[in-house]
Structure formats: C-alpha cells, structure tokens
C-alpha cells in the first residue's frame, strides 16, 4: 500500500489554477523528490497534503484512508510531519522548547491534568526532556539546545526544523527545501542524514528542493512540477534527462550542470493567505 496517494488534485485561488490534476504517490520507505521552478505549485501541494489548503477537487489519501477534509493537527496525529520553506519554528522559544512543543502528541497526560499539576505529569515532562535530548544528539545539535531560534543562522535552523518534525514522531516526512541556504558539502551531509533517518525511523520522505544533485542522489522517484502540473516523473536520472524538464526547469540544454546554489532565503511562493482552512488560522 502506498503511504501517500494524491489523485487528481486541483486547487484554484480565485481565477488562478495553482495545481491542476496532480497525481502523485509515495510508497513505504520511499524518498520522493519534487522539483520544479519557483511558482510551480510545490509548496501549494504540501499545503494540500498537510491540510492548510482545502483542494478544489481531488483526493489525498494516507495509508489508504481519505484525509482530504481533515484539519492540520489531526493529520500530524496520523503521522504526517512537515517542514516549512521559510523555517517553521517558534522563533522566540529555544530549540529545546521547540522540541518539547513538537512532542505535543506524545505527551501522555491530559492537558487539564498538566494544568492542575497532576502527579504523573512531572515524570512525563522529564521523559519529554530526555527525548528532546536524544533527538538533538541524533542530529548533532546538542550545542544549540539552549539557543533561541531567532538567534540561530538559517542553515542550522533548517536542521533544527528536521529535529522538530522528527519529534512529532512522523511516518511520512514532508520536507520543503531542506537544503536551501546550504553549501554543496552541507547538502551532501544532509542527504546522508536523510538516508540514515529513513533507515532508523522507517520513514517515507517527500522532499521539495532546488538542489538537483541532492534530490537525484537520495530520491527513489522524482516528480517535476511546472505551472501546477506534473511535467515528468520517473527515476531521478530519467527525469533529469527529460527534455521537457530541462527546458522548463533548467532553462537550457539537458546535459548542462544546473546552478547548485539556490538563493539562501527563498523567494516566497504563493504560500501565504489565499484560502487558509480553519477560519482562525
């Protein structure tokens, strides 16, 4: 069974069709890469998978269950974790506090028991702290644990974000440009980390990145989006050599080396307001 199955997903904002009949699947233990030029609808796709946007038509299924109408936090509870293009962390909190917050669903006590200071909550809080510690250790981030997120450089934050999303205990990881702001060596290291994490936690990963070498190295399967449609899909090398992809994405001939460094702070994709699901958000 596929972990994630998106069928004929369409979303329109006003008159603009941001995604048109997108079909995509990610299998167990698979790493799926999504590439495509800015504004191709990659982040919009993530927002549909996680529930920030409600698609106009189509279906999102997770392990066979239709989750198209589910609110964001329930999808997280099912095991869908995501990172954000421009760093999804609580900026005024420390890294450790972020990890503790991200373990919201792992906390066994009832929120009211926590507020009342029930006897079991103290031990549980200790467990949460220890788990945060382990995750930081795992990603080699222990030295920034007490730092405030707002004080950390972008590259480190991208890694902290992965730590935070791991803390939510996901089965399916959606990474939005995890390699942005990183140099080639760091990107290579990130690729190794992802492969390792997949192995250790049994994750499936869907990842958006402009870093074509990174994507092609770690992905089992690659989709290329352009203007809200799937332009090409297949094994990484096939997609990379696909003439349409080369034209749309690289803008030049197939065999030319793509520019490896994307802009450090990515330009905003249509990620913000249009039709946020859940009035309060």
């Amino acid at each position: 069974m596929s972990v994630l199955e998106i069928s004929n997903l369409t979303i329109r904002f006003g008159g603009i069709t941001a995604l048109n009949e997108v079909t995509l699947r990610a299998g167990e233990w698979e790493i799926v890469g999504i590439i495509g030029p800015n504004g191709a609808g990659k982040t919009t796709l993530f927002n549909c998978i996680t529930g920030f946007y409600q698609p106009t038509a189509g279906r999102v299924a997770y392990r066979g269950t239709d989750i198209t109408g589910l609110p964001v936090h329930k999808r997280t509870a099912l095991g869908i974790g995501r990172t954000f293009q421009n760093v999804g962390l609580v900026k005024n909190a420390t890294v450790r506090e972020n990890l503790a917050t991200a373990q919201h669903l792992q906390v066994s006590y009832d929120p009211w028991a926590g507020i009342a200071g029930g006897p079991t909550t103290f031990g549980e809080e200790r467990r949460i702290r220890e788990r945060s510690h382990l995750i930081l250790e795992l990603l080699d981030l222990r030295h920034v644990g007490e730092e405030r997120v707002a004080d950390l450089p972008y590259g480190v934050l991208k890694k902290v974000e992965i730590a935070a999303v791991l803390a939510t205990d996901p089965d399916l990881l959606l990474l939005d440009e995890p390699g942005s702001g990183m140099g080639p060596e760091e990107a290579t290291a990130l690729g190794d980390t992802l492969l390792e994490l997949r192995q250790q936690f049994g994750l499936s990963i869907v990842m958006i990145d402009h870093h074509v070498p990174l994507v092609t190295r770690v992905s089992d399967y690659v989709y290329c989006l352009n203007f809200g449609e799937v332009l090409a899909e297949g094994k990484p090398d096939d997609v990379r050599r696909h003439p349409e992809v080369a034209r749309a994405y690289l803008g030049t001939e197939p065999e030319t080396e793509p520019e490896p460094a994307p802009e450090p702070v990515p330009g905003p994709e249509p990620d913000t307001t249009p039709t946020l699901v859940g009035g309060a958000l």
Binding site: G81, T101, H104, Y109, G114, A280
Partner: peptide
C-alpha cells in the same frame, strides 16, 4: 506542561503550532 507550550506556539505562529 503541554497546554502552556501549545499556547506559546499558537500565539506566535498558529500554522507551525498546528503542524506540531
């Protein structure tokens, strides 16, 4: 406890909070 952390997160960034 978790309620306080949830409030701190949603005060600053409700989208990140819900993705947690």
């Amino acid at each position: 406890s978790k309620a306080g952390r949830a409030m701190a997160a949603l005060r600053e960034n409700p989208r990140v909070a819900s993705s947690y």
